[in-house]
Amino acid sequence: MVVEKEGTIDIGGQSLYTKSWLPDGQIKAKLIFIHGFSDHVGRYADGLFPALANRGIAVYGFDQRGWGKSVRKPADMGLTGRTSRVLSDMAEFIRPHLTKGCSDPPVFVMGHSMGGGQVLTLLSDENYQDSVVTKIRGWLLESPFIGFAPQEQPSSIKIFAGRLAGKLLPHQQLVHRIDPKNLSRDPKVVESIRQDKLMHNTGTLEGFAGMLDRTTALDKGVAMPKKKGAVKAIWFGHGTKDKTTSFESSKRYFDRCLGEVEDKEFRAFEGYYHQLHADGPDSEVFFREVGDWILKRAEEKIDEGREDQAAAVRPTEAKL
């Protein structure tokens, strides 16, 4: 049985919607989840989150500023703020869940699509290395936005014009629709996306510019972990048939920007589309592998804690 809890968190003068999926029993690990563009945490609630909670992994998510149930009025849609605001929101949501002692369950962070790009930017930002990054046991990226899939690549003229307009009218809203058929192979999921009124597909020029800046920095290898040992473990999952974000960009980033990370894995999901968590029956494989990866490292953390406790109570040998 999974226990679901709704709430809010006040960050930067705004109340953001939160929801958690908790095991009905021992919490073996905590997972903080960051959703994608025009998405909200409710989109992951039919499969991924309950599957993880049923295995002892507590999941905590929030609808980011400008998205989902954190939107209170039309002017809020897509009003994410600059990248500094986006990273600050994420860090403020993560901090209350961080472990306070060796007996606490380890914390993991996972980002999907736009949220994946945000997570990679956060773990690469020196401002958050000591206060957040070093305290996370592992990072997971689902179809992270590091580059556009060919079907979604905007022209250089459109990008230039958008950046210019963004400087003059940063809060100007712009609708950007992604064909639901390019997100999932499951017809039921495609239809549910079309019917989901919380998925408004509306961003601001400032928000789009920030997203492009983050993507460019990641794709060029400018944003990458710089402090050795800060990122303890990282897992990438990307579908080879993703029609939204670039599989090739993800693999390139993994190969050239994570050299300092010893515990790393790239999982290519053959034939999968963008939403690995909602791509038909095959998504069960994704659920299982994400859970296995987290629990393996959670068990290692628990074993380390037991060894530390044993060492603390071990009697000191008498000196002759």
Rank of each mutant, 00 (worst) to 15 (best):
F108A: 00
M199W: 03
S250W: 02
E284T: 14
G162S: 12
E6N: 08
S103Y: 04
G56R: 13
A217S: 10
A161C: 11
D63N: 06
I9Y: 08
I178T: 05
A311K: 15
R65E: 03
G68L: 04
G117D: 00
L276R: 12
R163A: 03
A310W: 13
T121N: 05
Y17F: 12
E92L: 04
A75T: 10
V190K: 15
R214L: 03
D76C: 06
K220Q: 15
C257K: 10
D282Q: 15
I32D: 02
I159E: 06
I302A: 14
V290W: 07
Q129R: 06
D24Q: 10
D125T: 04
P180E: 09
Q173T: 05
A165Q: 07
G237T: 15
D130Q: 06
P187R: 02
G237C: 13
K296R: 10
G13D: 11
G207Q: 05
R82F: 07
L141D: 01
V86L: 02
G47D: 10
G221T: 09
S38P: 11
S124F: 00
I11A: 01
T18Q: 06
M224Q: 15
L164S: 08
P74K: 13
P144T: 06
R306W: 06
H176K: 08
G147A: 05
H200P: 08
L320N: 12
I157D: 13
L123D: 00
S124Y: 02
K228C: 11
G166H: 04
N127I: 05
V190Q: 15
Q173D: 01
P154S: 11
P315M: 09
I11T: 04
A230Q: 13
E270S: 15
G101W: 03
L168K: 06
G12N: 11
L87I: 14
R314V: 04
A268F: 11
A311V: 03
R82I: 09
D39T: 14
D104L: 10
